[in-house]
Design a protein around this nucleic acid. Sequence first.
RNA 1: CGGGAUGUGGCGCAGCUUGGUAGCGCACCUGCUUUGGGAGCAGGGGGCCGCAGGUUCGAAUCCUGUCAUCCCGACCA
Length: 580
Amino acid sequence: MRMSQLFLRTLRDDPADAEVPSHKLLVRAGYVRRVAPGIYSWLPLGLRVLAKVEAIVREEMAAIGGQEVRFPALLPRDPYEATDRWTEYGDNLFRLKDRRGNDMLLGPTHEEMFTLLVKDLFGSYKDLPAVLYQIQTKYRDEARPRAGILRGREFIMKDSYSFDVTDEGLEQAYQAHRAAYIRIFDRLGFDYVIVKADSGAMGGSASDEFLAVLETGEDTFVRSPGGYAANVEAVTTVVPDAIAFDGLPAAHAEQTPDTPTIETLVAHANAAFPRDDRPWTGADTLKNVLIMLRHPDGSTEPLAIGLPGDREVDAKRLEVQVSPAEVEPFGEEDFARYPDLAKGYIGPGVLGTENATGIRYLTDPRVVDGTSWITGADVHGSHVFDLVAGRDFTSDGTIEAAEVRAGDPAPDGSGPLELARGMEMGHIFQLGRKYAERLGLQVLDENGKLVTVTMGSYGVGVSRAVAAVVEGSYDELGIVWPKEVAPFDVHLVVAGKAPELFEGADGIVADLEAAGLDVLYDDRPKMSPGVKFKDAELIGVPTIVVVGKGLADGVVEVKDRATGERRDVAVADLVATLTA
RNA sequence: CGGGAUGUGGCGCAGCUUGGUAGCGCACCUGCUUUGGGAGCAGGGGGCCGCAGGUUCGAAUCCUGUCAUCCCGACCA
């Protein structure tokens, strides 16, 4: 490709609306243009990269027997009504009407369509297993699109679906996808982790997320030196051993005026009731938090959560635990209905289905039998000290709602956890029979009986991956593409304007292309060398070949974009050097 | 949906306080010079100053409304 012919304009300044590196660089280097918030056009360079990523995905999907199909992006309402997602998706769904007033939507994902397609055409266990996938534009009307290509309202996604009669078949399809995804992300060349996704509401179905490790990521995950990795929502607390009650001091209530917060309580305890061995800390206190649950049927239920005072409730972890109920704040009017609750001094004494309030009381897993706590005495201005779990109070069960912190032990014993940010690039999920049931996807088994098909759904953010690659591979000069996804193999710059240089370059380009290399040939005649070098570095093709003064002696310069290393190579050896 | 900011050629910005012929840099076009690190000189094209009202002899500038965009948060592949 001759650069004089390429539809490209590079920009010297970062666009004002860009914040993250991939956004700035992809716009500056002429890969994409913004059309509307979260909606981008792909220019020739960008499309080449996108095609490379798609090719990797197609190869790896083919390798596990996936067959490609393509559904429309524009879809009728009906199938999504059957699974309730017309409603469930809420404002995130792009909705429109056709001229007859029929409701339509722009597909946010295609579980329904795949399920119905298989139902349409297949009716026997002999037809299964099957894996179908598509690479298609998806639409989600995000409340706040951001970070350019990384999180748009229109994006390209590979979604595949497996169809099996047996749970074992589903497990196999799931593992095949997991392996394929590992190969895909390895080839894309960015740092990623596989984390267990939330283990809550969907009832134990296996689910792994592939997260690109990025500062700009929107998911928080944890990992340990020993290789454990999980979404914070899926982290389980390491439960300490129970402690024998023998010798534990008896509980005693103390006056603790003006200590409605953990901070004031700890300060007061250290001042008025100092320990011999060490100061009191927030971890010695048991904080009791009240929330209101709203169940899907609209009813509400209060819930009390007891957790070490040095930890906050993590809203996301809590939501996963109580799903499908939703969490609402416990308001003043709710407190008014429970006169036994002494705000700021609430303790286990009145919590629990057996006690005065009758409010269900769940505690953090760290609150095991024999642990001693300072906690509210259910009287304003008073706390109980040495209140021992299992001896002086009990709860109605445990709940994983406390925040996860760096340094917490990994559940599998593989060391202290570290918190990091990631961006979801792939998600594999055992859907089970939910969609098949809703949509009536059944086949006849060997005995001639109708059985419901079990499904898996597996996504890769294809356009997002392009941005993630950039996020993981750039420097102050521009993008540094890994070979597998670079728009070209070689960027050849003519430094100079002597006709002999261009003639020589023409020949070199022809040789390289004959050897199967994609060459971006900067043949722009009047451009100064400095501009060409800057453009080459910004665009980020892995290998830059400079045809300049050395050509008279039969050598050109080969520069590695990533390392900056340059060396002179004889023209005669160039093809061999670059294809090695 | 809450908080903050910003809308001026393709891009980045100044001008607004104090109303008076719309400016700068980059990019683009022409010519000459230059040619290994975002060249120089000269000339040139391109604008409904987000939109709508209002005040005024006169509005990019003041007032009111409105729309949009960006950032932080809530939410989210």
